[in-house]
């Protein structure tokens, strides 16, 4: 029972991180119907920028952890968003209206570029960061297992919930969100009605990149090690999460992320750690078999 609870906590934390990345995939897919393969790399850049900004802030500012983290959060969100914007501007915007696979290949190319860019500029070795936020609460003391909830895990989950709330508010209540939803439904019609579609798409990429940046920050703090390759697997899993929840749906992305995180935590807790990715993908296939549009996806109506 204690062990189960501990895996639940770990799974939820992991799921929060996946969910944040998955939102970027699902929003971009919803609006222009492409798989943004470079999104995992954007998240990786977010992790690197976090590390750099945190080190810079603590070196200059004298070492206050809270201040350093806040500066790192702000810096990584701003700079990663800029990267997300630039990727869209360079590699995807010229290909709007091109055959469907062209942006996909361009995105894969961009992902290779970004990966090697960070490998060249920051080195291939794993970058360790000693734990910044320590401490935690012991929830339950069992006979041979204690359930531990660290402060960091609380921070991650709370921050995720706050961000998700903020994004849901932006999408549902603000003019920007309305324009986004309109563009998602019908790009041409939205343009006719005076929505600057290019600007809305840019905004979508910026928002996705910001969330990925926060996920990068969380991973840097949570695992304490990053390298140039983390974007690939996290990207695939987040995309799996987006598909699992029903691609194009925001709550679906959160739910999918949570599920993937839980599957991973429980599988590595109870079965084998080597095959945890196999488990996640297998669950995806199973879900798609019974619900081809994902858990919360709307069924696609095909018109002739």
């Amino acid at each position: 029972m204690e062990y189960f609870l501990q895996q639940l906590i770990n799974g939820i934390t992991l799921g929060a991180i996946y969910g944040l990345i998955a939102i970027g995939y699902t929003m971009v897919y919803g609006i222009i119907g492409m798989i943004n393969f470079a999104h995992g790399e954007i998240y990786m850049l977010g992790a690197f920028i976090t590390l750099i900004a945190y080190l810079a802030a603590t070196t200059i500012g004298g070492g206050s952890v809270a201040m350093g983290l806040l500066i790192a959060l702000a810096a990584t969100m701003i700079f990663t968003a800029l990267w997300g914007w630039a990727v869209e501007r360079i590699a995807y915007r010229p290909l709007r209206g091109a055959p469907k696979l062209a942006p996909l290949i361009s995105a894969i190319g961009m992902s290779i570029v970004l990966q090697n860019f960070s490998q060249i500029t920051q080195g291939a070795r794993v970058k360790p960061l000693p734990p910044v936020i320590r401490g935690g609460i012991t929830l339950l003391e069992g006979e041979n297992f204690t359930v531990h909830l660290s402060i960091l895990q609380i921070v991650i989950v709370v921050l995720t919930v706050v961000l998700m709330g903020a994004f849901t508010w932006i999408i549902t209540k603000t003019p920007l969100g309305r324009a986004q939803r309109a563009t998602e439904q019908d790009m041409k019609m939205a343009a006719l009605l005076g929505v600057d579609v290019d600007r809305i798409i840019s905004a979508t990429f910026v928002m996705g990149a910001m969330l990925a940046a926060v996920a990068g920050l969380m991973v840097t703090l949570y695992y304490g090690v990053i390298d140039f390759y983390i974007g690939f697997l996290a990207g695939i899993k987040a995309f799996t999460a987006a598909v699992l929840g029903g691609i194009g749906s925001l709550p679906g992305a959160m739910l999918g992320g949570l599920l993937i995180g839980l599957i991973e935590a429980f599988w590595s807790g109870y079965f084998s750690i080597e095959y945890k990715d196999v488990a996640a993908f297998s669950i995806l296939v199973l879900v798609l078999l019974f619900r081809p549009t994902g858990l919360l996806g709307r069924p696609e109506v095909e018109k002739i």
Partner: peptide, 14 residues
């Protein structure tokens, strides 16, 4: 080489 490879993929597509 890989950097150029990825770049080439993007450029050819554009």
């Amino acid at each position: 080489r890989m950097l150029a490879f990825g770049g080439a993929m993007v450029l050819i597509m554009l």
